[in-house]
Amino acid sequence: MAITIGVLAVQGAFLEHITLLRKAAGEITSTDLSFNFIEVRTSGELYTCDALIIPGGESTTISLVAARTDLLDCLRDFVKVERKPVWGSCAGLILLSEAANSTKRGGQELIGGIDVRVNRNHFGRQIESFQADLKLPFLDQARMPADAFPGVFIRAPVVEKLLPKVEGVQADEQQVPDSVVAPSKQAKDEKAQAASSGQVEIMGVLPGRMKRAAEKGAEIRASEEAGDIIAVKQGNVFGTSFHPELTADFRIHVWWLQQVVAAVNR
């Protein structure tokens, strides 16, 4: 079986994701399985994909450029109607959220797919960008090496609210001042519905104490303290506010490829 995985290449760090996907694919040993990794700039390229990564970059740029062609609508179909596996990092997480605030004047277009509200540039400007060790339980559960994951946060968003699962658009969120919401789309069949139903799972948090210590440039370690939500999953749509693609650590890429293989076989 050949699985085609696209990385959205409108703008941002798409080559970095492809590099790590290639390394991660080497860890998945199966004789009748092969991966094909492609850059996606057009709807035609998207149609060939079984799964997609939306990389870090500028979310306003990515949505504006995608909206100039039929690509933005096709992305919404890919995520919400077809419900194929998707992962967004940083800007990708913003685009995959059903609601976002702190967007540019006049708001911005979202794809949606995860029932959360994100706060863009949550930590502030570049001078507040930082790196911190993360404890990610889902890697342990997948029997990966248990070392802390190097979390690189660049003008990063956080998930500030988990939203209820609703029919149609997140109408309550539309009433929140300066908040934008994604348009609603109906999943095409039972399989797609199954992949989109269910609650949002919190896959990783950044303890508040740790964040403040990181801002001071201190050596920091993850703790059990509750904090900012920086990784979420709902069905087969996954988002991280940090950038695994800026490290050499491909554990999350291996984990995600395993998820994709399972989803394609389902």
């Binding site: 409108v10 660049i154 950038h243 800026l246």
Partner: peptide, 8 residues
């Protein structure tokens, strides 16, 4: 890292 996010 920020420069990498500006690529393209």
């Amino acid at each position: 890292g920020l420069a990498q996010m500006l690529k393209g």
